[in-house]
Simulated assay, not measured.
Amino acid sequence: MRLLKQLGAVVAVALVGGLGVAAAAGNALLTLALGTATAVLAVLTYGWVVRRTEQRATVEVALTGASAAVGRGMLIGFGMFAVVLGSIALFGGYRIAGLGSPAGMVTLVGVMAAAAVTEELIFRGILFRIVEQRVGTWNALFLTGLLFGLVHLFNPNASLWSSVAIAIEAGGMLAAAYAATRTLWVPIGLHFGWNFAQAGLFGTAVSGKSEPAGLLEGVISGPAVVSGGEFGPEASLFAVLAGAGLTIVFMWLARRRGEVVPARRASSAGTAVRLPK
């Protein structure tokens, strides 16, 4: 029941906020304001419902150190995408056609902030965290990563391969980031940095969706296995390899810090949440 109550509260904020952001399309400042408000309200709602249903402090969204953690995550997300897009460009799959729209870039800050925060609260803050308590870290990483990929199967231009790619490079990697740090701020920053770099800076599709024009007008071409095709760079083999590599690094850190919950002990893990690293 606590899972359903938590999901219901945060999903409601995500849906209402998403409708508001969509309705404000074309107005950069209003979209930015509504996207930011959705992100803030989602975090507040998550903290409120988790405190009520689990009777504990929500250290995973504690404000202390939040800015630094988000910043670290954003740097990782930007860096990861830069490596992926650079690899795609090296094989002739990406080129810059010209300048995009500064207003569109501002719009995308709001859009991506709302999406990154609500998705991380739902998939890592609620689903991964609660499932991990029952079946252990590795099983939870696999199950919630698979679910994250399946949800993206309904996106425009999606395919079975693109969903598998999302499950590995995002679903698994972001869950591993949470497992290693025990704070949601790092995966939130990473998620935002990755998405914003795609559309807001380099002008490519995000998970199959053609977002408003960002800072640059990018053109993707060539074999889909290299460029990701119409789905965007997330369906590129380079993105999958980068995400898998970061997953390994994060899980190594989680194991080194003693944050991996073994499956045989998961049932006795209770609702305890360790302090962020």
Score class of each variant (00 low, 15 high):
S163G: 14
A244G: 15
A66I: 10
L215P: 05
L121T: 10
M251Y: 04
L201Y: 09
I248W: 15
P276H: 01
G86P: 15
V106T: 07
G208A: 01
V249F: 13
T247Q: 08
A114R: 06
L44S: 10
E54K: 06
A89R: 01
L4Y: 08
G79R: 04
A165V: 04
L160F: 14
G71N: 11
R124W: 01
V106C: 12
F231H: 11
T45V: 14
K277R: 13
F202P: 00
G93A: 07
G100F: 04
M105Y: 00
R124E: 12
Q6M: 11
L160Q: 07
L19V: 15
E217C: 05
Q133M: 04
L30I: 07
R129S: 11
R124K: 14
I166E: 04
A254V: 01
A37M: 03
Y94C: 05
Q55C: 08
S236K: 08
G218L: 00
R51S: 15
R129P: 01
V50R: 04
G20I: 09
A12T: 14
A69Q: 06
I248Y: 12
L99G: 13
G193Y: 13
A175P: 12
A97T: 13
T118K: 11
P102V: 13
V49E: 11
G218W: 07
F231S: 09
V261M: 15
I126H: 08
V13N: 02
A177H: 05
I88L: 08
E234Q: 13
I96P: 07
A269D: 15
A115K: 01
L99Y: 09
G229Q: 08
R255T: 11
E132R: 12
S221E: 15
G93S: 03
V21T: 06
F231D: 06
L29I: 06
P276Y: 00
A113H: 09
G228D: 12
R72W: 14
S162W: 01
G136W: 08
A37Y: 04
W161V: 05
L90S: 10
A66E: 09
V21L: 09
A68S: 13
T204F: 11
F78Y: 13
G100E: 00
L127R: 09
S236F: 02
A266R: 09
A176I: 07
P233L: 13
F78I: 14
T107M: 13
A179W: 05
G104V: 02
P276A: 00
G110R: 08
R134S: 02
V261A: 00
L34A: 01
V111K: 00
G65F: 04
M105P: 09
T36R: 04
I76K: 01
S221M: 11
G73A: 03
M74Y: 07
V249C: 10
G98I: 10
A254M: 03
L201A: 13
W252K: 05
V226R: 02
V151I: 15
L30C: 06
W185F: 06
L147T: 09
I166W: 00
N139I: 00
V260L: 12
I76Y: 02
S227F: 13
W138V: 12
T181L: 01
V226L: 08
G20C: 04
P276L: 01
L275W: 12
V109T: 03
L184H: 04
M251G: 00
L19S: 10
R2Y: 07
L216G: 08
L127K: 12
G8I: 10
G172L: 12
E119L: 04
A140Q: 07
A266W: 11
F154S: 14
